[in-house]
């Protein structure tokens, strides 16, 4: 039986062999690996790219104080982007399962329709949830649109839910019982994290401050997008990546406010719209900057 980290190593090694850049997790809070610039921005435009990384994904509302065996405030995703999707992408995916020790002729595998959509990011794709003996282990998506932009090359995104997958491989009923490395359990590593952040997110986070942070990050992201659009020269080194970090901060603060029950129904739609506007603004600017950098248009 492989440990949690050994399984991760194997998956990374597998995708490295397919020519993927192996990135490290992004260092800003995100709700899903899709939101990292390595996915959100890199899927835009005509440049091929292949990348894989583990991304801890924070969903404040999913926290259960470390008491529920299958639910986590912060879970880890292995995110793979293949842009463009090769014709044998499904076969590659199946090989990756074999690579972590799943003998596919002894297991039942089904691809069930599951299209993905993120209103906050102006993004959607078409795909499946992959079911292994009745357990959803991967989300498989062909991206069609991101930041409101139709994608030139429809990339394939594979998102493995790592805790679930390893709990399956290690035959554990609770993710907390997963062996992270010999002698150390998932609980040893992560329990306090789950407990304390559940307390913070549900009980202690200062709502007034969160709103203030949301406003500040929004203003900064918007200022940068406006400045980019207004500037005539020097667009090629303009910090759009920094603008995008502020968008991610907005999204995370929104999720915290939501978990705290601080967002009313009418506000909710409005805030999602505000974040989407920023994401769409950055995506459009990014596409423009890419064209400049590739020498397609003059800076």
């Amino acid at each position: 039986m492989d440990s949690y980290q050994e399984t991760i190593f194997k998956l990374k090694r597998f995708w490295a062999k397919q020519g993927c850049v192996i990135q490290e997790p992004y260092d800003v809070e995100v709700g899903a690996g899709t939101m990292c610039p390595e996915t959100f921005l890199r899927v835009l435009g005509p440049k091929p790219y292949k990348v894989a990384y583990v991304q801890p994904s924070r969903r404040p509302a999913d926290g259960r104080y470390g008491e529920n065996p299958n639910r986590l405030y912060k879970h880890a995703q292995l995110q793979v982007i293949l842009k463009p999707a090769p014709a044998n992408v499904m076969d590659l995916y199946l090989e990756s399962l074999e690579a972590i020790g799943i003998k596919l002729d002894q297991h039942d595998l089904k691809f069930e329709e599951d299209n993905w959509e993120s209103p906050t990011l102006g993004a959607w794709g078409i795909g499946w949830q992959v079911m292994l003996d009745g357990l959803e282990i991967t989300q498989f998506t062909y991206f069609q649109q991101c930041g409101g932009v139709d994608l030139d090359l429809a990339p394939a995104e594979l998102t493995y839910g790592l805790e679930r997958l390893v709990a399956f491989l290690q035959d554990r009923k609770s993710v907390y019982d997963i062996e992270w490395v010999e002698g150390v359990s998932y609980r040893d590593v992560r329990f306090l994290d789950e407990q304390q952040f559940s307390v913070y997110n549900f009980e202690k986070a200062d709502v007034g401050m969160l709103w203030k942070l949301l406003d500040l990050h929004e203003a900064e992201a918007q200022r940068l997008v406006n400045e980019y659009n207004a500037s005539g020269t020097d667009k090629s080194r303009f910090p759009l990546l920094a603008a995008y970090d502020h968008v991610l901060k907005c999204s995370h603060n929104f999720n915290l406010l939501d978990a705290r029950g601080a967002i009313s129904v009418t506000e909710r739609v409005g805030v999602i719209g505000r974040v989407r506007k920023l994401a769409v603004g950055v995506a459009a600017a990014w596409c423009d900057q890419e064209r400049i950098l590739s020498g397609e248009v003059a800076a």
Binding site: N68, N70, R71, D108, D133, G134, F168
Partner: peptide, 18 residues
Amino acid sequence: KGYVQKGNERVLEARFND
């Protein structure tokens, strides 16, 4: 080898536990 049965039973049990 009964893996599929066992896997499905485990998934169901986790769902029922939830």
